[in-house]
């Protein structure tokens, strides 16, 4: 199936092109748009971006594989990114991870989210959930699932 950027995204892309010395700079922005549009980045989307920016598909693909926030496969379950780096670890991220194990979610052990002062922390979609306790996790998931 072909990937086509939405009209809204195409307008955004054209506007962004004016803000950079070279269209190649739009690689990450376009990958974000494709991911928001389809929930993941398909090879067809990579081809579409490559065409839009005038660079080879591989120049987009290797970039997409470098950054952990880009998903190259469809995401079936809710992605819960739990920070496991030191400050969160010291403040009990293990317990949160343990607690999440039995939930219907896709747990991603992620590196430092930059929320060390409000540890432990997790991110779902683009939102941070801070100062977590198992009870708080239950409440958050209840809302989202």
């Amino acid at each position: 199936m072909n990937f086509i950027f939405t009209e809204e995204n195409l307008i955004k892309i054209e506007a962004l092109k004016l803000r950079y010395p070279s269209p190649q700079a739009l690689c990450l922005p376009c990958l974000w748009m494709a991911q928001h549009q389809e929930g993941y980045i398909s090879i067809n989307a990579i081809d579409a971006i490559s065409e839009t920016l005038g660079i080879a598909p591989m120049e987009v693909y290797r970039v997409a594989t470098f950054y952990t926030m880009f998903h190259l496969e469809p995401q079936e379950k809710l992605n819960v990114q739990v920070c496991k780096t030191l400050s969160c670890k010291l403040c009990g991220s293990d317990a949160i991870l343990e607690h999440l194990k039995n939930k219907e979610v896709n747990i991603i052990h992620t590196e430092c989210l930059g929320s060390c002062g409000t540890a432990p922390v997790m991110q779902i979609n683009d939102t941070f959930y801070e100062n977590l306790t198992p009870e708080k996790v239950d409440a958050i998931l209840k809302e989202l699932l």
Partner: peptide, 9 residues
Amino acid sequence: TIHRGAGAY
């Protein structure tokens, strides 16, 4: 212009 990264320390 804000340029968003995508997860790379």
